[in-house]
């Protein structure tokens, strides 16, 4: 156990410089976050270091003014539906991609990579147009469909390497023991890929709750998620008090923070951003 000795992280002047930059980044980041939190609890805050007086009223006001209750319900509904459907569609596809080699496999991988690589706005606008044409947009169904577009490929790209590292001989062994396809899935593959499925589910959840553009383009008044409601409240600032927007932002961030802490218990932090890089090898 030689690793127990803490490695020297500092020492050279370059090392100090790097730590200086990191600390500067964190100090400012903390400033950004704390400024919002402080403001959300402040009575009045104008051209002083700290607000004059404290209050928690803004939270109640934000809750009422922005009808946060229904918004949170919508956010939850969208997130759960997107996670469930994208797993149902994505996991079998990931299995087939991991196991089979067939003509056009690379083309199919590219097809699944594109929705992740393109900025959401580029396909969001035509997608919203199509969804409006067929009457999906403006409702929950439209928001869910739009959010599935990057989520399904994301599940596929996260799960494919995961399934690849499960020895295919184990499935064959199950077959030779007399297991049917569904039994192989249920009794062998599912227990072995629970960590991967959990990771993919949480990642899709985090991304869906945070996804602004697609929801923004397809949501109607009754189908806004929290981010979109927050955006509207901010861009219409002046009508509402600044502090109540801050309060809403704090609610949003706390929610994301809880998700993050849960996520980090199950997944490698790198997975939070993408597994796309690994796919290209």
């Amino acid at each position: 156990m030689t690793e127990l000795r803490p490695r020297r992280l500092t020492g050279s002047p370059l090392g100090w410089l790097i730590w200086g930059v990191v600390i500067f980044f964190f100090v400012n980041l903390a400033g950004v976050i704390v400024a919002v939190v402080v403001s959300s609890f402040g009575r009045r805050w104008f051209d002083t270091w700290l607000p004059q007086g404290w209050t928690a009223d803004w939270y109640g006001r934000a809750w009422r003014d922005f009808t946060l209750g229904p918004v949170l319900v919508v956010t939850l509904e969208v997130a759960v539906l997107v996670v469930g459907i994208s797993l149902l569609i994505g996991v079998p596809a990931a299995y087939a991609l991991a196991r089979a080699s067939f003509p056009g496999r690379r083309l199919l991988l590219l097809l699944f990579l594109l929705p992740i690589l393109m900025p959401p706005i580029t396909y969001g606008i035509p997608l919203a147009t199509v969804l409006y044409k067929y009457g999906f947009a403006g409702h929950l169904s439209g928001v869910v469909l739009a959010n599935l577009v990057p989520s399904v490929p994301f599940v596929i790209l996260t799960m494919t390497p995961f399934i690849e590292q499960i020895d295919p001989a184990i499935e064959r062994a199950a077959r030779m023991c007399g297991a049917r396809t569904w039994q192989v899935f249920l009794r062998v593959l599912a227990p072995l890929s629970v960590p991967g499925i959990l990771a993919a589910a949480i990642l899709v959840l985090v991304r869906t709750v945070g996804m602004f553009e697609l929801t923004f383009l397809t949501a109607g008044p009754d189908s806004q998620t929290l981010v979109v409601a927050l955006y509207y409240s901010m861009s219409s600032a002046g009508i509402r008090a600044q502090q109540s927007v801050d309060a809403m932002a704090v609610i949003y961030t706390s929610m994301m923070l809880v998700l993050l802490v849960v996520a980090l218990r199950f997944v490698n932090p790198t997975q939070l951003v993408a597994r796309v890089g690994d796919e290209e090898k």
Partner: peptide, 20 residues
């Protein structure tokens, strides 16, 4: 006939035991 219905037993090179 699919493998699961042939009623054969198989021993794999790397054993392929169910790790769970």
């Amino acid at each position: 006939v699919p493998p699961e219905r042939r009623g054969f037993g198989m021993v794999f090179q790397n054993y392929a035991l169910f790790p769970h």
